[in-house]
Design a binder for these strands. Structure first.
Lengths: 144, 144
DNA sequence: AGATCGGATTAGACAGAGTCCAAAATTCAA
DNA sequence: TTGAATTTTGGACTCTGTCTAATCCGATCT
């Protein structure tokens, strides 16, 4: 059951709704809440973290809806999947080209802007294949 | 030091046992079978594929042992984890530096030798951090 | 307003990967 | 061969994610 959160500016909700519409997504209450959580700050939450964040006050959004919505956002190019951890997928609301640091000890993910990063010497793609994306993951750990 | 990529050499149980000893691993029957499966050819099996391959004739190795052994091999630097698919981890018996093509439609993984591949313009690591590895994943899909 | 209709949401059962544990089996040095 | 230490095991368990059938909106039409 949806409960309106009057503490937040209707402005923010309305602008998120417009962004969703601009991407061909019907803006429902749950989708707006999930988008707010995704875009409120620079982080890389898992589906479970999003579910928790959306439901801090009351349980108003189900697990299935979070997964449905994340898949929808993914299809519409609103978020990116980050596959760096064997246990779960993280979602990246920064859709501009970039790469990642992944701190293997803490799980923390940090963006690396793609400007200035260049990869040379990659072999040609296998025949009939097209590049869907190039990810660089720099795995780090605490030094000496 | 034993050469990690033994795909071109005929592997006997005894030679595999020696390699395991050389890496500080007690060579048990199960570990030898798993190593044979891992190194018999150039592939990137999941834990489940390894379990199946080891038990083609009859069940002789348990799931728990496959996971224990893969973790042990990982610790000892005998294999690498490949995290490219949200659903499962693949294991890479080629421990020389290289990157990967990942065909998102078929799940097929192809090695990219690291020689000749150069990455320029990566920012400095976060303070106190050390690089544990740099992975490039070129995600591909069937073209037009 | 009320009725309708299709998309969105839901609970909860389900599936698959991987972990954990205590008991049983195996290894290896003596 | 013996026995302590290491390894293996089945099975229960956790966790992430999927599926489905029922229900719930919410926009549009009378």
């Amino acid at each position: 059951m949806y409960h309106a959160n009057m503490a937040l500016e209707p402005n923010t909700r309305e602008s998120v709704a417009q962004m969703l519409r601009a991407h061909g997504i019907t803006p429902t209450h749950q989708r707006i809440e999930i988008a707010l959580v995704l875009f409120e700050r620079c982080w890389h939450p898992s589906a479970d973290q999003i579910l928790t964040a959306v439901n801090v006050r009351y349980a108003e959004t189900s697990k299935a809806t979070v997964y449905n919505t994340l898949k929808l956002f993914l299809d519409k190019g609103l978020v990116r999947e980050l596959i760096v951890d064997p246990n779960k997928v993280f979602y990246d609301s920064n859709t501009s080209a970039h790469h990642h640091f992944y701190d293997m000890s803490s799980g923390e993910i940090t963006d690396i802007p793609a400007e200035g990063v260049r990869i040379d010497g990659l072999p040609p793609l296998p025949a009939g294949m097209v590049t869907a994306g190039v990810d660089i993951i720099v795995r780090t750990r605490p030094g000496i």
